[in-house]
């Protein structure tokens, strides 16, 4: 999920995370961090890039009907926390008109979507969202 009011350079720097869920994996203990960290809990500063799997399970979700101005025309917004290969990732749930139909541990897939845009003339911010594989209606 892209933060609000991003500057273009800030968005550009985070493209690997927004587009591909690029995490880091500690070379010493194997812990995976998303978003990436500079120092592992084990003290190591040596990491390899690691792309999270694009399928996982939904752990929890919530539905927002009062949202910030950038997203007013997309109400209601559903957000979820998904377990992607042992890493918990927070993201918008899409193609899910009725989240109440989602069972516990529903399978979700990572999809590439527009997140926001700066008016009709500015940049379009793309990033990942979460989509229930079997839908919810």
């Amino acid at each position: 999920m892209v933060d609000q009011n991003l500057s273009v350079p800030k968005y550009w720097r985070k493209i690997p995370q927004y587009y591909r869920l690029t995490a880091v994996k500690c070379r010493k203990c194997g812990r995976v961090y998303f978003p990436p960290r500079a120092v592992c809990e084990c003290g190591s500063r040596e990491f390899d890039e690691y792309e999270l799997p694009r399928r996982g399970k939904l752990i929890e979700y919530t539905v927002l009907r009062s949202v910030t101005s950038d997203f007013e025309k997309q109400r209601p917004l559903a957000f979820g926390i998904a377990d992607l290969g042992g890493v918990r990732v927070f993201g918008q749930l899409v193609d899910c008109p009725n989240p109440d139909k989602l069972g516990e541990g529903a399978e979700v897939e990572v999809v590439f979507r527009r997140v926001k845009e700066d008016s009709d003339y500015g940049i379009i911010y793309y990033g990942f969202k979460l989509r229930p594989v079997k839908g919810c209606w």
């Binding site: 587009y19 997309q74 899409v94 193609d95 590439f112 979507r113 527009r114 379009i124 793309y126």
Partner: peptide
Amino acid sequence: GYIDEDPVTMAVEASR
């Protein structure tokens, strides 16, 4: 397409 889908997002999905 949903409000957040466009030729870019669909191109990424198909290419993956």
